[in-house]
Computed example of a mutant assay.
Amino acid sequence: MGSDRAGIGDKEAIAYIRQMLGELHNVAQREGADMLCYLIEMAYVEAGDVQAGRRPRSIMHAERDKSSGMTV
């Protein structure tokens, strides 16, 4: 199991991401941003699946968790 620079383990990082997605979903819902709500909800579900071990972290076979290169 790897960890990031702040010392957060892989499972804790995914849990944190999922928590933040839940908060973002609430903000998007208050703003009436239906498409954002949907996309955030999909990411929330995906994070839950990763947490539960139902999905791998990455769909890339040889390249674990590679970014798409998109800046946010």
Rank of each mutant, 00 (worst) to 15 (best):
A28V: 05
G7F: 08
V72T: 05
R55C: 03
P56S: 11
S58T: 10
R57N: 08
Y16A: 02
H61A: 14
S68L: 15
E41Y: 13
R64D: 09
A13L: 09
D49E: 14
M42S: 07
P56V: 04
R64M: 11
A33M: 11
G7W: 08
M20N: 08
G22V: 01
R57H: 15
V45A: 09
Y16Q: 06
A13I: 00
G32S: 15
G48P: 03
A13W: 01
G53W: 05
D4C: 15
E41G: 15
G32R: 11
A47L: 02
R57T: 03
S3Q: 15
T71E: 09
I8T: 15
H61N: 12
M42Q: 12
G32E: 13
R64P: 10
Y16C: 00
S68V: 07
G22S: 14
C37L: 04
Y44A: 08
D10V: 06
S3N: 14
K11G: 07
G32M: 10
A6V: 05
D49C: 05
A15T: 02
G69Y: 06
R64C: 04
G22Q: 07
E31K: 13
A47T: 03
D4A: 04
G69H: 10
A13V: 01
A52G: 14
A47P: 01
D65V: 05
E12D: 12
D10A: 10
L36G: 02
R18W: 01
G2D: 10
N26K: 14
I17H: 01
R5G: 10
A15G: 05
A43W: 02
L24C: 13
M60K: 09
D10C: 04
M1R: 07
G2E: 14
I40V: 10
Q51K: 04
Y44V: 00
G22W: 04
Q29H: 09
D10F: 07
A43F: 00
E41K: 14
Q51L: 15
E23L: 06
R57I: 00
L36W: 04
Y44C: 04
E41F: 03
S68Q: 06
A52D: 11
E12H: 03
Y44H: 12
